[in-house]
Design a protein around this nucleic acid. Sequence first.
DNA 1: TAAACCCTTCACAAGTTTTTCACAATTTAT
DNA 2: ATAAATTGTGAAAAACTTGTGAAGGGTTTA
Lengths: 228, 228
Amino acid sequence: MSKEDIKVLIIEDDPELIMVLSMYLKKYGIDTACAEDPYIGLSMLTQDKFDLIILDLTLPGMDGLEVIDKIRENSNIPIIISSARNDLTDKVIGLEKGADDYMPKPYDPRELVSRIKTILRRTKGGKSIEQKGSFYVDKQGHAIRFKGKTLELTAAEFDILEMLIEHRNSALSREQLLYESEHIDDSSSIKNIDVIVSRIRNKLAKIDSSKSYVKPVRGVGYMLVDEV
Amino acid sequence: MSKEDIKVLIIEDDPELIMVLSMYLKKYGIDTACAEDPYIGLSMLTQDKFDLIILDLTLPGMDGLEVIDKIRENSNIPIIISSARNDLTDKVIGLEKGADDYMPKPYDPRELVSRIKTILRRTKGGKSIEQKGSFYVDKQGHAIRFKGKTLELTAAEFDILEMLIEHRNSALSREQLLYESEHIDDSSSIKNIDVIVSRIRNKLAKIDSSKSYVKPVRGVGYMLVDEV
DNA sequence: TAAACCCTTCACAAGTTTTTCACAATTTAT
DNA sequence: ATAAATTGTGAAAAACTTGTGAAGGGTTTA
């Protein structure tokens, strides 16, 4: 599945937070570069290629909102705003100016990772349609094509099928499917996975009923069988 | 033997919770050691090798966050924090100090297991598919591929075939096959092995019927013949 | 060559897991 | 606010796996 290198620029004046964030993001395979001064940050943007910016709004001696404008003059790069002022105005204006998301401090770094991934899935995606065996997965468009036809999947079904495709010909446990899906309630019963799989199977069968692609792996979970 | 040994250190002052967790984790093939006192826990770290630590933050007479620092002085081992105080600050600081995940108490042990596995998957590197002769064994994915095709094996069949592959070109006794398989009842008749081998042979023959890979070794057991 | 022994396979019983259904709860859209 | 769609639950039905005994076929050895 190979992680594409993600590189993030952090513009933030608290050196300790920078340290902490860098280390945490690195654990998830996200590289970072940092600038304590927004102008330095802006110049770094011209020199290196980044996938996303995390911008602290409460910078000393400068309005963070202005920085957004400056960035947007040259680039469409995704921006996540972070701010200690839990001020709705900041958030609204920031988003209006073209930021992509807003994280009020203090925040759970896990959530930051999750938002970074969500945003990059939406924007970067690279080649947004990837072929995996007999499936074409369009993460951006939340669509999966199978044998030339587009499956009409709900969010939960998409999550599960996408994971199965990603790990095709290898079993995934119900637990993993449940806890790593974004759209299924973590507290829901493990049996729910069976129900969702059943619904996915129905939709696949409408296109190709000659065989069952999603096989049960007794005592474990499910495996998408798709030999090429 | 077919499970990778995972060993977890639990630092937690509630003896009852320790009991419950140990038993639950054992069910999922995770070994545990426990310390009610963080200093004892720290010294255990130097004596034994663990894959992960579950650390209770609300320890008596000591700040759990300090424990994280102490651990991090010597080791990069993954840490999962657990805490009764559902306090965002604790959570953030914990994760910032280098913990890998956070579980607010009370939590579902199932979720703990899932998070342990997720973290270890991330830190210990992805899936390991090993080639052995003409076979590819994917333990994590409960799949064995033979001549490019994925065999559809039941749990018992998987156990037996995996052992045969591991010791290919040398004989294994029925007793060994029976007792070292996780999914075959120890109290079942030794003849059961023959039946299972027969079923494995059928599945192999569906892919390559030109020769029989699993040869009987008279008076002993079976041998997988796979000259490369 | 026959007798003894071992291996292979079959069919089915028992037990377990999975599948699916109908409906409840929840979320989203109109 | 109401309707529509999605997600979640419990239970009955179906499917599958394991294990057993027995029949049949092969091999070895005396």
